[in-house]
Design a protein around this nucleic acid. Structure first.
Lengths: 233, 233
DNA sequence: AAACATAAAACGTCTGACCTTTAACGTCCA
DNA sequence: TGGACGTTAAAGGTCAGACGTTTTATGTTT
């Protein structure tokens, strides 16, 4: 017989899917405490061990977080972040990937970003500049990353946006580390005004070039970056 | 008390880490059947439920695959692939992300790829051309993807390479779907000779441009692609 | 009002049993 | 001899109950 087996689904997988749906659908929002094991057992009509296997899978995936004596909470809505962090890549590698995504995001956003998103980018750029003037490291990193993330979101590609978000923690760590090594001298005083202009003009080529012009962790093969200062920005 | 709790590690997490190490270290190679639950219980000195929670986590992550009545097998060495597939992104989105990674990979590879890798690229290109002449869809898709993957690997960035590999299944599905819609007419008869030339010359800018010149699922903002034929290539 | 003791609730782990599926073995018959 | 078939052992899947550990809330005391 070559019939590839009906493969009656494994109960645990159904439960995982069920719990996952509650999270991705938003019925269990970020940060919320999900029902207790006892409650879920009763509602789903399964044994505790089966439920625990399901929740453990989602905990490992990064979607849930269990706290003994307290409860289980929604920690994320995508498994990408956890998976990427488990690779614990080197900082330079993360920056290189970010650069590729940045360029693509900028190019796509030039054609798709909405006026409202452009306004938000403007505000984020202002916050970034303020943090710079005040020499506020954490605020600057946060604003810079929020700007880039907003561009990625403006690209209208949820996979791209999710990927960028998943790289977020590693990127912030990278930024902080770089900062601790070089201080404010190592960072880029320039803003992203040029990129924002390009997005406003709908100029994809210029936007893509601008997005990568002042980040370069590996040698400046993009040709437009200043060779002497390879800093995050 | 503000002491953020010593948080004595949870046993299951230790077990997960232990199993994960066996996989990533290669002691349990791809496709191998891992020891039986009974054996692992004895070796680790834990209860069956605890072990099952650990294995279930890795099963959901895509590293393991359990088959009732048979055993548990190593299915992958990275969790990225499973996480990305669970997003079930639209085909166009995957192609856009691929485009960004392609450009970055090509640019980096121009500076880092080894002569041996270049030879391999040459061979893959030949295979790709042969498949095209013989109108062998599956062989063509396989060779094309292998070429791109080899470029990504040649970039000397393991995160980039892993990401590209993780997108593989979705990309192949995308290719196949595109093919079923358009047949050989929709595909790109051009090869990647220009890209290979650029890599050989160490010309990063040309390599990056060439990598994205003939893929375009979203409008040809890269400026060098022919506007009339948006096909995978 | 602050500090301490107590109890309840939630997740963590263990034990043992039984079910379902698969693979391997051995037997039987053409 | 070789294939078909039935048996059986082994592996993962599910259930049930018990007890441990941690956190939070409660309530009492000083």
């Amino acid at each position: 017989m070559a019939l590839p087996s009906v493969r009656r689904s494994v109960l645990v997988d159904d439960v995982i899917q069920r719990l996952r749906d509650e999270i991705t659908s938003g019925r269990w929002p970020m940060g919320a405490r999900i029902p207790t094991e006892t409650a879920l057992i009763a509602e789903l009509g399964i044994a505790r061990g089966t439920l625990r296997e399901a929740t453990r899978a989602l905990i490992h995936a990064g979607l849930l977080q269990a706290r003994q004596g307290d409860g289980t909470y929604v920690r994320a809505t995508s498994e990408l972040s956890g998976a990427i962090q488990r690779l614990d890549s080197e900082l330079g590698e993360v920056l290189e990937v970010r650069q590729g995504l940045d360029a693509q995001a900028a190019g796509l956003a030039a054609a798709r970003i909405t006026p409202e998103a452009l306004d938000r980018l403007d505000a984020l750029l202002a916050r970034r500049a303020t943090a710079w003037r005040q020499r506020d490291r954490d605020a600057w990193i946060l604003a810079d990353h929020a700007f880039h993330q907003a561009v990625a979101t403006g690209a209208g590609n949820s996979l791209l946006s999710d990927l960028y978000a998943a790289l977020g923690p590693a990127l912030r760590r990278s930024m902080t580390a770089h900062w601790d090594d070089h201080g404010f001298d190592g960072a880029d005083p320039r803003g992203h005004e040029d990129l924002l202009d390009a997005l406003r003009a709908g100029d994809a080529v210029r936007a893509a070039r601008s997005a990568t012009s002042n980040i370069d962790a590996t040698g400046d093969w993009h040709g437009t970056s200043s060779p002497s200062r390879p800093g995050p920005g």
